[in-house]
Design a protein around this nucleic acid. Structure first.
Lengths: 149, 149
DNA sequence: TTATTATGTATCCAATATAGATACATTTAG
DNA sequence: CTAAATGTATCTATATTGGATACATAATAA
């Protein structure tokens, strides 16, 4: 099964940014799930990760729900990625490689370095966008997609 | 199950680069598999991808085997990644997201752009290393790991 | 020509990770 | 106290990968 946690979380965060811009509205896990085309359980599994990272603020109980914990402009997409993925490296090498030659002896260290470098490049790319800017991009996309007349 | 095709392929390519530097030696899928801690079947599933990408040259039949098709200096790691991963995007968004609002209407386009950008950054990072340079790095790692006296 | 020894593939099974569904404990506002 | 939200546990279905076996195909040595 394909891992859709990052795209799903990103859509949740964009929905929260939109709700914030429309007057600090709280969204429930059910509403977030319907918007993202998934079910409330998955949303409720993701919320604590975002909450621990300080990106959202969650209120339990009646009249509770979810909102962004910071202005949309201050939430860059790399922090969302990190909140969901955690310490998991982008790529994982095979374990139990026998040590027999220059390559097999040191592939693990080498691959670790390579992975960290690539990850850094990836996160830097994500850090160039924030939620507010992304909402603007969504608006531009919607405008472009309108049928011409 | 964790996907180890890229790390495995990278190790195979490094082994081939080492074999090349030691006198254009051919390696069999069995030898490559033993070095990488896997089985010949997986290696033989990966070889055609590298071959189609023009990175290796494979000879069937008795006395056959695998060698690099180009000098190690001219094989950058991004081409290896592309050969194995193909067109598969780095991240895949969920399908069947209902179109109901600014976010859900346009998330698919937005996420596609984001993914392509991140992928580009990733490949650029990989393109900074080639196989020859990587062998040198393996040698440096091995030297550093020697116990001091 | 024949035996040997490579790769290329098909097939099957096992292991693993994620998504989805249900249920229920916990928390909080009214 | 009730209603309604999140937090979590558990189970199942599904998809993907890796490993094993077998065999077709190809090419070389003898």
């Amino acid at each position: 099964m394909i891992d859709v946690r990052f795209p799903t979380t990103l859509q949740m965060m964009l929905s929260l940014a939109l709700a914030q811009s429309e007057g600090d509205i709280l969204l429930s896990s059910t509403q977030l799930a319907e918007g993202a085309g998934t079910n409330p359980t998955l949303v409720r599994r993701l919320l604590p990760l975002l909450s621990k990272a300080g990106l959202i603020s969650v209120t339990k109980g009646r009249e509770g729900g979810v909102r962004l914990a910071r202005p949309a402009r201050e939430v860059t997409l790399d922090t969302i990625y990190r909140a969901i993925v955690g310490d998991e490296p982008l790529w994982t090498a095979r374990e139990n490689v026998p040590h027999r030659c220059l390559v097999s002896n040191n592939i693990s260290s080498f691959f670790g370095r390579l992975t960290r470098e690539a990850e850094e490049a990836l996160l830097l790319s994500l850090s160039r966008r924030d939620l507010a800017e992304s909402l603007e991009e969504l608006r531009r996309i919607e405008t472009c997609a309108l049928p011409g007349r």
